[in-house]
Simulated scan of single mutants.
Amino acid sequence: MSATLDRGAAARAQSTPPQTTPRSGARRRRLAAAGLPLLSVLVFLGAWQLAASSGLWSEVFVPRPATVWAAAVDASTTHDGVRGYQGYLLLEHLYMTLRRVAAGVLIGVAGGLVLGLAMGSVGWLRRILEPWLTFLRALPPLAYLFLLVIWLGIDEAPKIALLALAALPPTAVATTTAVLGAPVGLTEAARAVGANRYQVVRDVVLPAALPEALTGIRLAVGIAYSSVVAAELFNGIPGVGGLVKDASNYNNTPVVLVGIFAIGLSGLTIDALLRVVERRAVPWRGTH
């Protein structure tokens, strides 16, 4: 009898699927989150290598990945008495670009937040300034770069001004929309208990507007970063945009691709950091 029971228990144990623990499920999700992007990179590199090896295009137009890697190493080191590219290492080019972006974004985002808060709170001000913001947002950076160069010269001022003008409209528009979307019930309740205008803005409007304003800041940083090559067209070395422009003058495609990858990878890193800040600043977003 006991032997029969033991055999039945063993059969049930074999037929019962193993239970997935929360820890193993989280591990699988982490592996998938890391593995899928890595797989896409490998597929991209494989397709690139096949395209470069097919002979359909000249090496000038489609260099091999190994050639681009060698150009990245040369731009990052001192070789044959040559230091990096045009006398600056790749990290130094990237540092100057990031410094310009940081200065321009700081000015543009600060101005956009103040402007958006004012436009969202004061109706007549919004009606006056909204067409000008739309006009500025519709302009491509190159449209006013040359005017900035005429006004400010070819040093750092026009580059930072261009990036600030690129970052200001999306921040202002997102902040205005967020302020206008603040819950009316909470605003009226705060006024009913005696809160003044400043307290309503500080304790009700700003917390309600913060999620959408942070999204606008992310968009502003992305738009400013995508304008960095235009900002560094004049006197852009050291700078990744200047590196790309100078290399393109000599059909140096590997160095152009090195600059493009440097801009793209650093942009991904900055956006990931902004998402971390967004999750910590507004942890309640997406929970209701």
Rank of each mutant, 00 (worst) to 15 (best):
S2W: 05
A3E: 14
R7G: 01
R7L: 07
G8Q: 12
A11M: 05
R27N: 06
A33H: 08
A34V: 09
L36V: 15
L39E: 12
V43Q: 02
G46A: 04
A47C: 07
V62N: 06
A66V: 12
W69I: 06
A71K: 01
A72M: 11
V73Q: 08
D74E: 15
H79V: 11
G81L: 04
R83T: 15
Y85V: 04
Q86F: 13
G87S: 03
H93V: 06
H93G: 11
Y95V: 11
M96A: 15
L98Q: 12
L106Y: 08
I107R: 00
I107E: 07
G111W: 01
G112W: 09
L115K: 00
L117S: 09
V122C: 08
V122R: 03
R126F: 08
I128L: 15
E130T: 12
P131H: 02
P131G: 07
R137C: 10
R137Y: 15
L142I: 15
I154E: 09
I154W: 07
L165Q: 00
A166W: 01
P170E: 01
V173L: 13
V173A: 08
A174V: 02
V179Y: 04
G181D: 14
A182S: 14
V184R: 10
A189E: 10
A190M: 07
V193C: 05
V200H: 02
D203G: 10
V205R: 01
V205F: 09
P207G: 01
I217E: 07
G222P: 04
Y225Q: 03
S226C: 06
V229Y: 05
A230T: 11
G239V: 02
V240E: 13
G241Q: 05
N249R: 04
Y250M: 03
Y250W: 03
N251Q: 13
A262S: 15
A262H: 05
G264W: 00
L265T: 11
G267F: 00
G267N: 03
D271V: 01
L273M: 11
L273V: 14
R275Q: 13
R275M: 09
V276E: 11
V276D: 08
E278A: 09
V282E: 08
T287S: 10
